[in-house]
Design a protein around this nucleic acid. Structure first.
Lengths: 351, 351
DNA sequence: CTGAAAGCGCTTACAG
DNA sequence: CTGAAAGCGCTTACAG
């Protein structure tokens, strides 16, 4: 038994007023006698009234203008290629609705460019913003401007505390590191050494990677007896020859390494080295389904990649902004996406 | 620079006819002079006309009636609890559109009940059907009736070949078994034995489980030298005391088992045994995030669970049916969902 | 073969 | 403080 959806007209008839008045009550546009107001509200509630979105949208001409501010994908860093795809998918689903999306990109390696592009965003007078707060200080400044303009914003990839963001969609970074730790533990023979590599040119990212590393190490705090040495290596210059130099040093001094964990998305660079030197006894665990990582995963040089669903982050980000704008309901603030464990056998379903 | 969306009115003006005529052309409702027709079509193409979904939906009163036919979730088999949730999520998203969903359930262990409920479904005169074709023969019969009535249908959980289904959303069963094989290989010390358990009361399911088992074993066809014996055990009576009897026999005769793979969703039953007998040296790999499986995963008795996203299967199924009905565009026929690798550390994000 | 008009449910500007 | 009317873009039944 289905109850037919109530319309303004139904409420109007039962309250003995016109639909114009009903609408004024429901939208708090004032100018209504208190007594009328109460009656209308009561009947609306009784009929379980919700507006017909179709009619509402058809009527309203003004579209929502969304703007995204994300790093540009480059040859050097292809991690960001997936993000636009998720946004386009969301926009395709929202096609019947009046929404626009303008994509603004910035140089992942330049704070100045980020700041410049935040100004571009503000000039567009957006109704909602989706951003990756790569640069902490600059992001805080930008977010306080957004707040002042009363523009809701959603974080992906990472979040900055104390910025009044509408929502964050992405990885639980610490826990993700812990998953990496667990996988490492599972596939590393006892007694072997573990090597943790932080590989990032951009110091701003270190905060992020640090948390992953902490999560990784935290996994071993209980059963630390199973392994030999656990040591870390920070490489700030990701040029291949530099990596070779650093790893040469490591392998000269350590002959018992069982597994290497690379905390960022550039594990393929370590894999290149491992493969070139035909080091077969070492397991490699890394992050993100970049083409070059996947190639190493398939060839067996990398054992596990952990995925953080970049496409889904932006897809959900756009949807949340739209839902908030059109319904005014607060979404769940922290939406941690599943931490995907990817091997050569299931990787194809994630691409 | 955005081009404004063309309306019937625009086409009408440019063609020098009324919007009624334009509509007749666009909907092939005949009764239009060929010359008029051509002109209208050409201009519609030039303007890149697509109808305004909002207005279309607002106008049309007739809703789509979808019907789902899935097994009832029982205490004995809680796998099916997630499926309704996915459908409700899809319906919530489709709320602004005129769609209804009627959920019909059948007894997973009874062909007769399935047949009975297929009749219920047909009586509802659905515009689209979502079903889990658990019973092969009966499903084929039902599908040919649907086809005769020209009712599109979507499979989840499994599919039956040669039935003209609109789409299948679910696992690639063979490949999923292969993933299980790979994980097993990764965490099992060399030289150890592998035990494969098929645990299913319902013989109809064996086809499904057989494919997983084949996939599992196929993974070892190349590097079969790493392990000792590989042997299988089929248990058709899943009562705990029977499982105990069967496993007692196994463990009496085999003292070198490194890992056990359970091909169905009842790995918790094997885990109960392992835990009760405090067998610490054995890794357990199983399927599906049932509460009781997850408990064993968290306590460490189960190493990996493989997830097949039951909720997403039905979510996407409902969406595909609606999209097909409202746009008439054929969806991708085989949609294999990612094969999730789940451990105690990432399981919470999947629940 | 074609056009004019009503109406889906809502919002808004206007009249009183 | 309230009502009547126009209009968003489309579809449909009717008149000619």
């Amino acid at each position: 038994m289905t109850v037919k959806k109530a319309r303004l007209k139904d409420i109007a008839e039962l309250s003995g007023v016109s639909i114009g008045t009903v609408d004024r009550v429901l939208h708090d546009r004032g100018e209504v006698a208190e007594k009328t107001r109460d009656k209308v509200l009561q009947i609306a509630r009784e009929l379980n009234y919700t507006p017909n979105l179709m009619a509402q949208v058809l009527k309203s001409k003004k579209p929502y203008n969304l703007v995204s501010l994300l790093p540009r994908s480059t040859e050097e860093n292809t991690f960001w290629v997936k993000h636009p795809i998720g946004m386009l998918r969301a926009m395709a689903e929202l096609d019947p609705f009046p929404v626009n999306l303008t994509q603004i990109n910035f140089d992942l390696l330049s704070e100045a460019d980020f700041v410049k592009e935040t100004k571009t965003v503000l000039k567009l007078q957006p109704d909602g913003v989706l951003l990756a707060p790569i640069f902490q200080t600059e992001s805080i400044a930008f977010c306080s401007l957004l707040r002042k303009e009363n523009i809701p914003f959603v974080f992906v990839d990472g979040y900055v505390q104390d910025t009044d963001f509408l929502a964050y969609i992405g990885e639980n970074v610490f826990q993700s590191g812990k998953v990496a730790g667990q996988l490492t533990e599972m596939i590393t023979p006892g007694g072997k050494d573990l090597l943790l590599i932080n590989l990032a040119r951009n110091l701003q990212n270190v905060h992020h990677l640090n948390n992953r590393s902490k999560g990784f190490l935290s996994f071993f705090s209980n059963n630390s007896n199973k392994f030999g040495e656990k040591f870390s290596l920070n490489i700030s210059n990701p040029a291949s020859d530099n990596i070779k130099r650093e790893l040469d040093k490591i392998f000269e001094n350590h002959h018992n390494i069982g597994s290497i964990f690379v905390s960022g998305s550039k594990s393929y660079k370590v894999a290149d080295y491992i493969k070139a030197h035909d080091i077969r006894s070492v397991n490699l665990i890394g992050y993100d389904l970049l083409e070059r990582n996947v190639a190493h995963l398939k060839s067996g040089t990398i054992s596990f990649l952990i995925g953080q669903r970049p496409e889904e982050q932006t897809y959900k980000g756009v949807k949340k902004l739209f839902d908030f704008l059109s319904s005014n309901k607060m979404p769940e603030k922290m939406e941690y996406l599943p931490i995907d464990v990817v091997t050569s056998e299931n990787v194809d379903f994630f691409l």
